[in-house]
Design a protein around this nucleic acid. Structure first.
Lengths: 359, 359
DNA sequence: CTGAAAGCGCTTACAG
DNA sequence: CTGAAAGCGCTTACAG
């Protein structure tokens, strides 16, 4: 007893954590009972008054389970990998994909669930095999894939397929029922945006391509074509302004110049990325073209850049938050019951937000 | 033996990890020896040929230590908290502080060191006590504080001072030798920028305040005053344009309008945030004011937004990468030898980058 | 130099 | 219903 007290004094000095044994001692029961209470498995096993005492002790000492001890017993690491294609830095400005929003939501839910994050920034110059190694080697409980190119990630997943670890690819339509991913139908939402412009009376609608990635551009172009076709407007490829400038704002600026040099001038423009739309607005301001009176503009992306625009952009709003939230929930569930490794595809719809740049 | 084989077959099917015992068996030595080799502590304890066999086995099976088992033995969690003031989302556009760059570097080094990250987004509406609880409750091995207000974090640290866990506050000058933090001398770098403009022949230099935070604004203003004083120019507070618009681009746009309405017109402007400088450039383009011929402009912040500007901004470049790197190195070292809890302050210098908006 | 053993903080099957 | 015990994968003090 003397010894025990000594040990505890030492522990307190060093701010060592309270363990399950301390709680058991305090609640005058066994370690097993405490564990059952902690994991909500006490029913029909531990009497209610014991449960109450345990809960009291937990509160008193601000006890939290040590994920390391728990992990060893459960053969889990309580770590989730965030497998990112390229570095975090490369992403924020590419392809209307807001890492801030996504990370913020994902991180918050993961942290609340007691998991830690292992951010793996995969070198895009590596081959598939090396990428696989980078991603899997740490053997975490699950992987959330962010910001991947459709082809690359498909390739990787099929290579490591038989390893049935929980994973989900966020915001990437893999068109493959054997894989798990979340995605949006970019064609459908672009169609809605273009239809809106047509309803506003426009027949010549410019299309500004901002992203380099074909897999992100082509679905939007498809939606554009579908919308005009339904309204009996013929497709004119000169209205599609392509610009490969790596600076998205500059790319929008240049492409807008191109589109507006056409005669007759288009009365509306769809810009496939909000950041590029900032460049479009810059060009319009310079040329004193009034928005939305002389030209209507609809962007595509997330709230952050849309609301930085002057006036605030009308835009197709990406469902980043929901995708982040659902992805984590999915993977957390998978990690609970490891046997279930059926695939799942989760579709999200995008919403047209009307603000200052169109009627 | 039969039993062992059965177990192993089962393991392989389930892709369970190789353990230290497997390596010991394969290398025909004891678990202790393998552990010593893994932790580079074998010298004078394990003969070289055994070490070689162990290393071979490790390679053969792609063995990596399980941080959970290791953690339990070493009483570590191999988790570092990233304590963030507010949500990740709120930060990217505030106060010239690029979370992308910082996170990218920090995450990369942490991951390589075998640690996982626990991102804690502290609710800014909570009181100090609750914030303390949120930050400490998980009992991780160390904390990196990002994006904190000087006063708040100081308050918190002094409240939990006697808990001698490893921590570092990134990019925040706490002016307190008893605490550990990295910081930059914003006054000194602003002075350099203003001096550059003075050398280019300007006597009337506008100062655009972009940030709301006083603790980030005042040091820069101090640098401005020091520079003009040294050159015998009197301070004119009408040249300092204050604008409280929460949209930094709009704020820059408005403030520029204010400054350029003064007579005689200033020939140069310093803008305390690169994002606001984008708004300044927008205004200048609209008014057909040529940069740098009619007006020279220097911003302050990080590379990302500076290079999005047209033309690329001249700016005071924040030392985000270095601060991230050094902070992690500092905390990793602290976590190794827990006894050492002396404080340390690390200063970083900022560099004036001359690009398209000034001579 | 070697290797069995204790112990880190948990969970859970099992004997009482 | 209860509680001692085994075991998860490591590290390290210790006996040989």
């Amino acid at each position: 007893m003397q010894c025990y007290n000594l040990v505890k004094t030492f522990l307190v000095i060093n701010q060592m954590a309270i363990t399950i044994r301390d709680i058991a001692k305090c609640a005058q029961t066994s370690v097993s009972a405490v564990s059952l209470v902690l994991n909500e498995k006490w029913e029909k096993k531990v009497p209610k008054d014991t449960v109450a005492r345990v809960k009291q002790a937990i509160k008193k000492y601000h006890y939290v389970q040590n994920p390391v001890g728990r992990g060893l017993a459960l053969k889990k690491k309580f770590r989730i990998s965030l497998g990112i294609y390229g570095s975090l830095m490369e992403h924020p400005l590419i392809g209307a994909f807001s890492f801030h929003e996504l990370l913020s939501y994902v991180a918050s839910i993961i942290s609340q669930s007691g998991y830690a994050i292992d951010i793996i920034q995969v070198n895009t110059h590596h081959g598939i095999k090396k990428m696989c190694d980078e991603i899997i080697s740490n053997g975490n409980d699950g992987i959330i894939f962010l910001g991947w190119d459709q082809k690359v990630i498909k390739n990787i997943l099929h290579k490591i397929e038989r390893i049935s670890f929980p994973y989900i690819v966020v915001d990437c339509n893999l068109n493959d029922k054997s894989l798990s991913y979340t995605y949006t139908d970019m064609s459908a939402s672009t169609e809605i945006a273009i239809t809106h412009l047509i309803k506003n009376g426009h027949k010549r609608i410019g299309f500004i391509r901002a992203e380099l990635s074909k897999s992100r551009f082509l679905p939007k172009l498809k939606g554009y074509k579908m919308a005009i076709k339904k309204c009996g407007i013929r497709f004119n490829d000169r209205l599609v302004a392509d610009n490969s400038n790596p600076n998205p704002i500059l790319s929008g600026y240049n492409a807008c110049q191109k589109v507006l040099s056409l005669r007759p001038k288009p009365g509306a423009v769809f810009c496939s990325d909000n950041l590029a739309a900032l460049g479009v607005l810059m060009f319009l301001k310079e040329k004193k073209i009034k928005v939305p009176d002389d030209l209507e503009l609809i962007g595509y992306g997330d709230l952050t850049f849309a609301n930085l625009a002057i006036p605030p952009l009308s835009y197709v709003c990406r469902s980043i938050m929901e995708q982040g939230k659902k992805s984590v929930q999915f993977i957390l569930k998978r990690m609970e019951k490891k046997r279930d490794n059926s695939s799942q595809q989760i579709r999200f719809d995008e919403e047209l937000v009307i603000q200052g740049t169109c009627r």
